[in-house]
């Protein structure tokens, strides 16, 4: 970037108190050029993340390189990004030829890596997070699934097709100005396509470089998965704190960010 703010900025100390864009200075009523361009840079990054497409071959190769089985690639009924953004209902249903790829087996868990609202997040963190979760799960796991044009509830149909009792959907969260790479993890026991409510899921949100580290996220996801099989439910019945306590004594505070919309 170009110039830094002037040293004599009397507001500068406000910036130490918050990440909000305080003490920006002004030129007349407007923003100084540096601040204007910083905002445009951050918005551009978020926009690019929303509109990026998953590079599926690269992501598949990364998953295989971690030791996971070859992933199954599926697509929702949303044929393009513009439709995906306007028709969340289409992002929750599988396109026909994708359904055919999902053979029923005898599985406990299906792990789904989905683009959601940030393919960038799935691309950059997905394989590593899948590997961490896959390594720690002591359940019969279906081959991982990469889902394009996907909302959270697409996982319900994927799990139902595979015959899995529980689905973990790792999905790109709506990018913010300060973070484009956050993944959300949604855990659903006994998912039923078109029937399961968002309140029947558990969520670990803001996973990524600006939020929860991958290893800690994986620990929480695995703990909640284990407890979900213990109590036969996810959602409001399952408290994350209980899951962590079961795993290894008292856990950290809840990472669930109630103000970030479900991607569903």
């Amino acid at each position: 970037m170009t110039s830094a703010p002037p040293d004599d900025d009397p507001f500068a100390f406000l910036r130490a108190k918050t990440k909000a864009r305080v003490a920006l200075g002004r030129c007349g009523d407007g923003l100084p050029t540096t601040r204007l361009l910083e905002f445009q840079r951050d918005h551009a990054r978020a926009r690019d993340a929303v509109h990026a497409a998953l590079d599926v071959p690269v992501l598949s190769a990364e998953l295989v390189a971690t030791g996971l089985p070859v992933p199954i690639i599926v697509q929702s009924l949303a044929p393009d990004r513009a439709t995906f953004l306007q028709r969340p209902d289409l992002g929750r249903r599988l396109e026909e030829s994708s359904s055919a790829k999902l053979e029923k087996g005898d599985y406990d868990v299906s792990l789904v890596l989905a683009d959601g609202l940030s393919a960038t997040a799935a691309q950059k963190q997905g394989a590593a997070l899948c590997a961490l979760i896959g390594k720690s799960l002591s359940f019969r796991c279906a081959p991982p699934v990469i889902a394009c044009g996907a909302r959270v509830a697409l996982g319900d149909e994927i799990a139902a097709r595979l015959g899995a009792h529980l689905v973990i959907v790792l999905i790109g969260e709506r990018p913010g100005l300060s973070s484009t790479q956050s993944l959300g993890a949604y855990i659903t026991f006994a998912p039923k396509p078109g029937v399961t409510w968002d309140a029947e899921r558990n969520c670990v949100s803001n996973i990524g470089p600006e939020g929860l580290p991958l290893a800690e996220a994986a620990r929480r996801i695995v703990a909640m998965t284990a407890l979900a099989f213990g109590i036969g439910a996810t959602g409001t019945m399952l408290k994350e704190d209980d899951a962590l306590a079961m795993l290894e004594g008292p856990g950290n505070s809840s990472p669930i960010d109630g103000h970030r919309d479900l991607q569903g």
Binding site: T18, R21, D29, G30, L31, S178, H259
Partner: peptide
């Protein structure tokens, strides 16, 4: 501040925007 709500994760109008429209 700066139109960027860091809690709700969306962009609104800023203090500067208020100065602009009043002016």
């Amino acid at each position: 501040p700066g139109a960027d709500d860091i809690m709700l994760g969306y962009q609104s109008t800023s203090y500067h925007d208020a100065l602009y429209i009043r002016s």
